[in-house]
């Protein structure tokens, strides 16, 4: 069905159910379209004035159409209540919370790049405050907070291990962006002044694109990031290296860019 619909490859756990719903709703649409189109073609041929010079004042007498309308309504309700609502509820409400087993990342959109902040091995982000914002510290992390020290940045490039739940907290510095990874079947607007969580479980190794899907200015079309799904070992190594660099001031965050 993925091929028939022309969907991109699927690389997340929950995506299968979304695709399933996309499939069912398109089946409904196709059934309605083909049915009505067949009827339509038949009718314009059968009742053309050349063949049927005298119109019938009363026309259709059956109640078939009312049954059809009810059927459409019922199917829509089933898709809505049975699929869409529960899927959404899980998509929104089941995001892992602090302390649960998951990879926590913060992504901040900015014209026209993606800032990515990792908490480092201690799993804790430093404190943030508007008053800290300034040159070299655009996110306002508190440089004196010990939790900040091993935080590190990885601009435009997100790395996660396979088969682990990822929770990304999205926000934006300037205008609205939208963080989307098509093969993961996730998308979420990044809105300045708000922090919105997004969570999913990648299950396929690869290097995926992060698209900005909300018009955000003249380079919107090239606000691309990368989302790399790697093995757990590779990930652990990478985190260790990055945060060590951060602590020693060789890279971002610890030394504040």
């Amino acid at each position: 069905m993925q091929e028939i619909l022309g969907l991109p490859i699927l690389a997340s756990e929950h995506g299968g159910e979304l695709d399933g719903l996309t499939w069912y709703i398109h089946l409904l649409m196709a059934a309605l379209f083909v049915g009505w189109l067949g009827y339509f073609i038949y009718v314009i041929i059968r009742f053309r004035s050349g063949r049927n010079p005298q119109a019938d004042y009363h026309g259709v007498k059956s109640h078939f159409s009312s049954y059809l309308e009810v059927a459409v309504a019922v199917i829509e309700i089933v898709l809505l209540v049975g699929f869409a609502v529960p899927l959404w509820a899980s998509y929104i409400d089941d995001a892992p919370k602090d302390g649960e087993d998951a990879i926590f990342i913060r992504v901040i959109g900015e014209q026209f790049s993606w800032g990515v902040v990792y908490p480092g091995p201690d799993g804790k982000f430093g404190k943030q405050d508007i008053s800290n914002i300034g040159s070299g510290n655009k996110y306002g992390y508190d440089p004196d907070d010990p939790d900040t020290l091993d935080n590190f940045q990885s601009d435009m490039n997100i790395k996660v291990p396979i088969n682990r739940v990822v929770r990304i907290d999205l926000s934006s510095l300037d205008v609205i962006h939208s963080f989307g990874i098509k093969p993961m079947r996730v998308a979420q607007d990044c809105i300045p002044g708000m922090v919105i969580p997004l969570w999913f479980e990648p299950n396929r190794i690869g290097r995926y694109q992060v698209q900005c899907e909300q018009l955000c200015g003249n380079a919107h079309y090239r606000m691309k990031g990368y989302f790399e799904v790697v093995t757990q070992e590779e990930y652990d190594q990478w985190v260790e290296q990055e945060s060590a660099d951060a602590i020693s001031g060789e890279s971002d965050m610890g030394g504040f860019e």
Binding site: I44, P53, S65
Partner: peptide, 12 residues
């Protein structure tokens, strides 16, 4: 549906 069914029986 109404518009479609209106075609039935017409002299189009």
């Amino acid at each position: 549906t109404v518009l479609f069914l209106s075609l039935w029986g017409g002299s189009i």
